[in-house]
Design a binder for these strands. Structure first.
Lengths: 142, 142
DNA sequence: TAATACATTATATTTATTCTAAACTGTTGA
DNA sequence: TCAACAGTTTAGAATAAATATAATGTATTA
Protein backbone atom coordinates (compact mmCIF):
# COMPACT_ATOMS: atom_id res chain seq x y z
CA UNK A 1 0.00 0.00 0.00
CA UNK A 2 2.82 2.34 -0.89
CA UNK A 3 0.50 4.79 -2.60
CA UNK A 4 -0.97 5.56 0.80
CA UNK A 5 2.32 7.05 1.94
CA UNK A 6 1.41 10.51 0.70
CA UNK A 7 -1.89 10.34 2.54
CA UNK A 8 -0.27 9.19 5.76
CA UNK A 9 2.20 12.01 5.38
CA UNK A 10 -0.57 14.57 4.90
CA UNK A 11 -2.42 13.26 7.93
CA UNK A 12 0.64 13.27 10.15
CA UNK A 13 1.51 16.80 9.07
CA UNK A 14 -2.03 17.82 9.96
CA UNK A 15 -1.58 16.41 13.43
CA UNK A 16 -3.75 13.35 12.81
CA UNK A 17 -2.97 9.70 13.11
CA UNK A 18 -3.46 7.75 9.93
CA UNK A 19 -6.55 5.66 10.46
CA UNK A 20 -8.64 3.65 8.00
CA UNK A 21 -11.32 6.28 7.91
CA UNK A 22 -8.98 9.20 7.43
CA UNK A 23 -7.01 7.48 4.70
CA UNK A 24 -10.26 6.79 2.91
CA UNK A 25 -11.11 10.49 3.07
CA UNK A 26 -7.67 11.27 1.65
CA UNK A 27 -8.19 8.81 -1.19
CA UNK A 28 -11.30 10.64 -2.26
CA UNK A 29 -9.85 14.11 -1.85
CA UNK A 30 -6.28 13.79 -3.04
CA UNK A 31 -5.91 10.65 -5.17
CA UNK A 32 -6.14 12.43 -8.48
CA UNK A 33 -4.49 15.30 -10.29
CA UNK A 34 -7.82 16.99 -10.79
CA UNK A 35 -9.02 19.38 -8.14
CA UNK A 36 -12.68 19.69 -7.30
CA UNK A 37 -15.29 21.35 -5.12
CA UNK A 38 -17.45 19.56 -2.63
CA UNK A 39 -19.82 19.84 0.28
CA UNK A 40 -19.63 17.56 3.30
CA UNK A 41 -22.78 15.80 2.16
CA UNK A 42 -21.32 15.11 -1.26
CA UNK A 43 -18.06 13.87 0.23
CA UNK A 44 -19.87 11.45 2.51
CA UNK A 45 -21.88 10.16 -0.45
CA UNK A 46 -18.74 9.54 -2.49
CA UNK A 47 -17.13 7.69 0.39
CA UNK A 48 -20.20 5.56 0.91
CA UNK A 49 -20.31 4.61 -2.75
CA UNK A 50 -16.63 3.78 -3.00
CA UNK A 51 -15.78 2.16 0.27
CA UNK A 52 -16.78 -0.80 2.34
CA UNK A 53 -15.94 1.16 5.46
CA UNK A 54 -18.29 3.44 7.28
CA UNK A 55 -17.18 6.94 8.16
CA UNK A 56 -19.17 9.05 10.56
CA UNK A 57 -20.05 12.67 9.97
CA UNK A 58 -18.03 13.75 12.99
CA UNK A 59 -14.88 12.16 11.59
CA UNK A 60 -15.40 13.80 8.23
CA UNK A 61 -15.88 17.25 9.76
CA UNK A 62 -12.88 16.86 12.05
CA UNK A 63 -10.60 15.70 9.27
CA UNK A 64 -11.71 18.40 6.84
CA UNK A 65 -11.14 21.08 9.46
CA UNK A 66 -7.64 19.79 10.22
CA UNK A 67 -6.79 19.86 6.50
CA UNK A 68 -8.11 23.41 6.17
CA UNK A 69 -6.04 24.53 9.13
CA UNK A 70 -2.98 22.95 7.57
CA UNK A 71 -3.75 24.43 4.15
CA UNK A 72 -4.52 21.21 2.28
CA UNK A 73 -8.07 22.36 1.62
CA UNK A 74 -9.77 25.73 1.29
CA UNK A 75 -13.23 26.81 2.26
CA UNK A 76 -14.91 28.75 -0.50
CA UNK A 77 -16.45 31.99 0.76
CA UNK A 78 -19.97 31.59 -0.46
CA UNK A 79 -23.28 32.25 1.19
CA UNK A 80 -25.04 28.97 1.00
CA UNK A 81 -26.92 26.74 3.35
CA UNK A 82 -23.94 24.40 3.43
CA UNK A 83 -20.22 25.05 3.16
CA UNK A 84 -18.29 24.38 -0.02
CA UNK A 85 -14.70 23.22 0.05
CA UNK A 86 -12.00 23.18 -2.59
CA UNK A 87 -9.11 20.78 -3.10
CA UNK A 88 -7.46 23.47 -5.21
CA UNK A 89 -5.51 25.51 -2.68
CA UNK A 90 -3.65 27.63 -5.19
CA UNK A 91 -4.62 31.24 -5.47
CA UNK A 92 -7.65 31.42 -7.69
CA UNK A 93 -11.23 32.65 -7.84
CA UNK A 94 -14.72 31.38 -8.61
CA UNK A 95 -17.80 31.78 -10.65
CA UNK A 96 -20.91 30.68 -8.81
CA UNK A 97 -23.80 29.68 -11.02
CA UNK A 98 -26.81 30.41 -8.88
CA UNK A 99 -29.22 28.64 -11.19
CA UNK A 100 -27.33 25.36 -11.18
CA UNK A 101 -25.66 25.71 -7.78
CA UNK A 102 -22.35 25.08 -9.43
CA UNK A 103 -18.88 26.46 -8.77
CA UNK A 104 -16.39 27.05 -11.56
CA UNK A 105 -12.73 27.90 -11.04
CA UNK A 106 -11.29 31.08 -12.44
CA UNK A 107 -7.57 30.75 -12.83
CA UNK A 108 -5.49 33.45 -11.25
CA UNK A 109 -4.23 34.46 -14.70
CA UNK A 110 -7.80 35.16 -15.80
CA UNK A 111 -8.26 37.88 -13.21
CA UNK A 112 -6.07 40.95 -12.96
CA UNK A 113 -4.37 41.21 -9.60
CA UNK A 114 -6.87 42.63 -7.11
CA UNK A 115 -5.13 45.69 -5.78
CA UNK A 116 -6.74 47.11 -2.65
CA UNK A 117 -5.59 50.63 -1.88
CA UNK A 118 -7.32 50.89 1.47
CA UNK A 119 -5.54 49.63 4.57
CA UNK A 120 -6.66 49.05 8.13
CA UNK A 121 -4.19 50.09 10.84
CA UNK A 122 -2.72 47.12 12.68
CA UNK A 123 -4.18 44.64 10.21
CA UNK A 124 -2.78 42.85 7.22
CA UNK A 125 -4.57 41.10 4.40
CA UNK A 126 -4.64 37.35 4.79
CA UNK A 127 -6.51 36.41 1.63
CA UNK A 128 -8.41 37.98 -1.23
CA UNK A 129 -11.26 36.12 -2.86
CA UNK A 130 -13.36 37.07 -5.84
CA UNK A 131 -16.79 35.55 -6.32
CA UNK A 132 -18.53 36.34 -9.60
CA UNK A 133 -22.15 35.29 -9.69
CA UNK A 134 -23.37 34.24 -13.10
CA UNK A 135 -26.83 33.71 -14.57
CA UNK A 136 -28.25 32.64 -17.92
CA UNK A 137 -27.73 35.13 -20.70
CA UNK A 138 -30.93 34.45 -22.64
CA UNK A 139 -31.95 37.30 -24.90
CA UNK A 140 -35.54 36.21 -24.30
CA UNK A 141 -35.22 36.95 -20.62
CA UNK A 142 -35.81 40.43 -19.40
CA UNK B 1 -45.92 60.98 9.95
CA UNK B 2 -44.76 62.31 6.64
CA UNK B 3 -41.27 60.94 7.08
CA UNK B 4 -42.71 57.48 6.83
CA UNK B 5 -43.68 58.15 3.21
CA UNK B 6 -40.35 56.97 1.91
CA UNK B 7 -40.65 53.76 3.89
CA UNK B 8 -44.18 53.12 2.69
CA UNK B 9 -42.95 53.72 -0.82
CA UNK B 10 -40.09 51.25 -0.40
CA UNK B 11 -42.44 48.65 1.02
CA UNK B 12 -45.01 49.07 -1.75
CA UNK B 13 -42.32 48.84 -4.41
CA UNK B 14 -41.14 45.63 -2.76
CA UNK B 15 -44.64 44.21 -3.03
CA UNK B 16 -45.37 44.54 0.67
CA UNK B 17 -48.17 46.32 2.45
CA UNK B 18 -47.01 48.97 4.87
CA UNK B 19 -47.67 47.60 8.31
CA UNK B 20 -46.49 48.80 11.72
CA UNK B 21 -43.87 46.07 11.95
CA UNK B 22 -42.48 46.62 8.47
CA UNK B 23 -42.30 50.38 8.90
CA UNK B 24 -40.38 49.83 12.11
CA UNK B 25 -37.92 47.63 10.24
CA UNK B 26 -37.53 50.38 7.63
CA UNK B 27 -36.89 52.96 10.32
CA UNK B 28 -33.98 50.97 11.60
CA UNK B 29 -32.58 50.14 8.19
CA UNK B 30 -33.12 53.26 6.17
CA UNK B 31 -33.68 56.24 8.47
CA UNK B 32 -30.13 57.52 8.32
CA UNK B 33 -27.59 58.53 5.74
CA UNK B 34 -25.11 56.06 7.11
CA UNK B 35 -25.10 52.56 5.71
CA UNK B 36 -24.31 49.60 7.91
CA UNK B 37 -23.97 45.85 8.12
CA UNK B 38 -26.15 43.62 10.22
CA UNK B 39 -27.25 40.11 11.00
CA UNK B 40 -30.88 39.19 11.60
CA UNK B 41 -30.14 38.72 15.27
CA UNK B 42 -28.62 42.17 15.56
CA UNK B 43 -31.51 43.74 13.69
CA UNK B 44 -34.06 42.14 15.99
CA UNK B 45 -32.12 43.36 19.00
CA UNK B 46 -32.08 46.94 17.68
CA UNK B 47 -35.81 46.83 17.03
CA UNK B 48 -36.49 45.46 20.49
CA UNK B 49 -34.45 48.21 22.10
CA UNK B 50 -35.97 51.03 20.09
CA UNK B 51 -39.59 50.09 19.72
CA UNK B 52 -42.56 49.37 21.86
CA UNK B 53 -43.84 47.00 19.21
CA UNK B 54 -42.96 43.36 18.94
CA UNK B 55 -41.78 41.98 15.62
CA UNK B 56 -41.55 38.27 15.06
CA UNK B 57 -38.58 36.60 13.45
CA UNK B 58 -40.69 35.42 10.53
CA UNK B 59 -41.70 38.98 9.69
CA UNK B 60 -38.11 40.16 9.83
CA UNK B 61 -36.90 37.40 7.55
CA UNK B 62 -39.73 37.91 5.08
CA UNK B 63 -39.22 41.65 4.92
CA UNK B 64 -35.45 41.42 4.54
CA UNK B 65 -35.81 38.93 1.72
CA UNK B 66 -38.29 41.13 -0.10
CA UNK B 67 -35.89 44.08 0.16
CA UNK B 68 -33.00 41.99 -1.13
CA UNK B 69 -35.08 40.84 -4.08
CA UNK B 70 -35.96 44.45 -4.83
CA UNK B 71 -32.37 45.60 -4.39
CA UNK B 72 -32.80 47.73 -1.27
CA UNK B 73 -30.45 45.45 0.66
CA UNK B 74 -27.56 43.20 -0.27
CA UNK B 75 -26.47 39.94 1.23
CA UNK B 76 -22.72 39.89 1.83
CA UNK B 77 -21.13 36.73 0.47
CA UNK B 78 -19.34 35.49 3.54
CA UNK B 79 -19.01 32.07 5.06
CA UNK B 80 -20.32 32.52 8.53
CA UNK B 81 -22.76 30.78 10.77
CA UNK B 82 -25.27 33.53 10.12
CA UNK B 83 -25.89 35.75 7.13
CA UNK B 84 -24.69 39.33 7.00
CA UNK B 85 -26.66 42.02 5.20
CA UNK B 86 -25.68 45.45 3.98
CA UNK B 87 -27.76 48.59 3.60
CA UNK B 88 -25.12 49.88 1.21
CA UNK B 89 -26.29 48.58 -2.16
CA UNK B 90 -23.79 50.48 -4.24
CA UNK B 91 -21.01 48.54 -5.87
CA UNK B 92 -18.31 48.01 -3.27
CA UNK B 93 -16.30 45.36 -1.51
CA UNK B 94 -15.41 44.22 1.99
CA UNK B 95 -12.73 43.47 4.46
CA UNK B 96 -13.70 40.79 6.93
CA UNK B 97 -11.84 40.85 10.20
CA UNK B 98 -11.93 37.26 11.34
CA UNK B 99 -10.62 38.04 14.79
CA UNK B 100 -13.27 40.60 15.60
CA UNK B 101 -16.02 39.27 13.33
CA UNK B 102 -16.31 42.68 11.79
CA UNK B 103 -17.03 43.82 8.24
CA UNK B 104 -15.48 46.96 6.79
CA UNK B 105 -16.51 48.54 3.51
CA UNK B 106 -13.99 49.00 0.74
CA UNK B 107 -15.12 51.73 -1.59
CA UNK B 108 -15.23 50.84 -5.25
CA UNK B 109 -12.55 53.45 -5.93
CA UNK B 110 -10.18 51.64 -3.58
CA UNK B 111 -10.18 48.50 -5.68
CA UNK B 112 -9.14 48.41 -9.31
CA UNK B 113 -11.90 47.15 -11.55
CA UNK B 114 -11.98 43.36 -11.33
CA UNK B 115 -11.58 42.28 -14.91
CA UNK B 116 -12.40 38.63 -15.50
CA UNK B 117 -11.13 37.35 -18.83
CA UNK B 118 -12.78 33.95 -18.61
CA UNK B 119 -16.35 33.57 -19.84
CA UNK B 120 -18.88 30.77 -19.55
CA UNK B 121 -20.99 30.11 -22.67
CA UNK B 122 -24.62 31.09 -22.21
CA UNK B 123 -23.91 32.86 -18.95
CA UNK B 124 -23.35 36.44 -18.01
CA UNK B 125 -21.85 37.93 -14.87
CA UNK B 126 -24.44 39.25 -12.48
CA UNK B 127 -22.18 40.52 -9.73
CA UNK B 128 -18.56 40.54 -8.67
CA UNK B 129 -17.65 40.59 -5.00
CA UNK B 130 -14.26 40.85 -3.39
CA UNK B 131 -13.76 39.65 0.17
CA UNK B 132 -10.38 40.39 1.73
CA UNK B 133 -9.82 38.65 5.02
CA UNK B 134 -7.65 40.57 7.45
CA UNK B 135 -5.83 39.59 10.62
CA UNK B 136 -3.66 41.35 13.17
CA UNK B 137 -0.30 42.46 11.88
CA UNK B 138 1.71 42.02 15.08
CA UNK B 139 5.41 41.66 14.53
CA UNK B 140 5.47 39.46 17.59
CA UNK B 141 3.25 36.96 15.86
CA UNK B 142 4.82 34.38 13.65
C1' DT C 1 -68.46 48.37 6.45
C1' DA C 2 -68.28 43.68 4.82
C1' DA C 3 -65.52 40.69 2.37
C1' DT C 4 -61.24 39.50 0.89
C1' DA C 5 -56.50 39.13 0.61
C1' DC C 6 -52.60 39.65 2.88
C1' DA C 7 -49.76 39.84 7.58
C1' DT C 8 -48.27 38.53 12.01
C1' DT C 9 -47.26 35.50 15.34
C1' DA C 10 -45.91 31.50 18.19
C1' DT C 11 -44.55 27.35 17.40
C1' DA C 12 -42.88 23.46 14.93
C1' DT C 13 -39.74 21.86 11.50
C1' DT C 14 -35.69 21.43 8.91
C1' DT C 15 -30.95 21.14 8.20
C1' DA C 16 -25.94 21.92 8.72
C1' DT C 17 -22.79 21.70 12.09
C1' DT C 18 -20.86 20.84 16.63
C1' DC C 19 -20.72 18.40 20.93
C1' DT C 20 -20.68 14.37 23.97
C1' DA C 21 -19.73 10.28 26.02
C1' DA C 22 -19.08 5.55 25.48
C1' DA C 23 -16.77 2.05 23.04
C1' DC C 24 -12.71 1.10 20.31
C1' DT C 25 -7.83 0.92 18.49
C1' DG C 26 -3.12 1.20 18.18
C1' DT C 27 1.11 2.03 20.38
C1' DT C 28 4.35 1.75 24.10
C1' DG C 29 6.82 -0.23 27.66
C1' DA C 30 7.38 -3.79 31.00
C1' DT D 1 2.02 -10.91 25.87
C1' DC D 2 -0.40 -7.67 28.18
C1' DA D 3 -1.68 -3.48 30.70
C1' DA D 4 -2.15 1.23 30.32
C1' DC D 5 -2.77 5.22 27.89
C1' DA D 6 -3.59 8.55 24.39
C1' DG D 7 -5.99 9.36 20.75
C1' DT D 8 -10.26 7.83 17.48
C1' DT D 9 -14.67 6.66 16.01
C1' DT D 10 -19.28 6.63 16.41
C1' DA D 11 -24.33 7.26 17.24
C1' DG D 12 -26.99 10.22 18.87
C1' DA D 13 -27.94 14.55 21.27
C1' DA D 14 -27.53 19.46 21.17
C1' DT D 15 -27.37 23.87 18.90
C1' DA D 16 -28.69 27.44 16.03
C1' DA D 17 -30.09 29.69 11.69
C1' DA D 18 -33.56 29.68 8.61
C1' DT D 19 -38.05 28.23 6.86
C1' DA D 20 -42.76 26.45 7.11
C1' DT D 21 -47.34 26.20 9.27
C1' DA D 22 -51.70 27.41 10.64
C1' DA D 23 -54.51 30.18 13.54
C1' DT D 24 -55.50 34.86 14.47
C1' DG D 25 -55.31 39.66 13.21
C1' DT D 26 -55.23 43.77 10.00
C1' DA D 27 -55.23 46.58 5.71
C1' DT D 28 -57.56 47.26 1.46
C1' DT D 29 -61.37 47.27 -1.77
C1' DA D 30 -65.63 47.95 -3.48
Amino acid sequence: MAYAEQFIDKLRKSGLRPTKQRIKICEVLFDTDKTFHFTIKELVKIIENQANIKVSLATVYNTIHAFIKKGYLKEIPLNASQSYYDTNVTHHHHFFDEEENRLIDIHQDDVDEVNIKKTIPGKKIKSVEVIAKIVSDNQSQK
